[in-house]
Amino acid sequence: MLRCNDYIFAESLEEAYKLNQKKNNVIVGGNGWLKLRKRQWGTVIDLSGLGLDKIDENDEEFRIGAMVCLSDLENHKGLDKYTCGAVKDSLKHIVGTQFRNTVTVGGSIYGRFGFSDVLSIFMAMDSYVELYKGGIVVMSEFAKMPYDRDILVNIIIKKKPLKIGYSSFRNQSTDFPVVTCAVAIGEGRIATVVGARPSKADIRTDSAEALEDINDYAIKTAKSFDYQSNMRASAEYREHIAKVLIKRTVERIINN
């Protein structure tokens, strides 16, 4: 349960940033993950009064506010079209409708969770986070950055001529994924992201020629990641599943 002494709706990003510099304070997104932490906070900082719950689309990019909930992302027509349904495919297995109406994309990306479907799909695209102080950072770099006290304001996706696909494997529907896989093909390159290994998503980029033999590409790419065992699956099993997901996702994109 979220425990705190005070709850403040920030009136500006500057105010939120200042409040967030205190170790005892914390930003709340959708409270999905935060509420699981057993801790008494000083002030909980709420960003929902700052207009960050919108998705703007123009010819060049999508700009997604940190407070957009996962279902608004999932149901956005422009994103669905741009990603051939891959964003929807990445989100639809996360817990349930009510949960995705509650939790936010900002909290999901800021968390950089190992199991994250959300991080996996964004990483495959030409995407960036916009931090209040840290400026604009490439998604794969942000994933590696240590947790600090900055504020994630927006997520930006540059519209590149890419074909995108997403697959995940779960032991049981709506559970955390055993392996996630996002692929983007275009501009002479292929980028493959594999996450939930169970460590967080990472990316491999090759020239499109690597796809002459899809099976070979899937085996080599799956092998290039590191895997560990946990209660959901063994490392060997994960690598095997990753290979299958990469192959299927590539084939689906190519045949689409």
């Binding site: 709340v28 909980v44 929902s48």
Partner: peptide
Amino acid sequence: GKPVLSCTMPLMR
């Protein structure tokens, strides 16, 4: 009008 989880969504929202 939107279904949400009342155990999770902060009340003040």
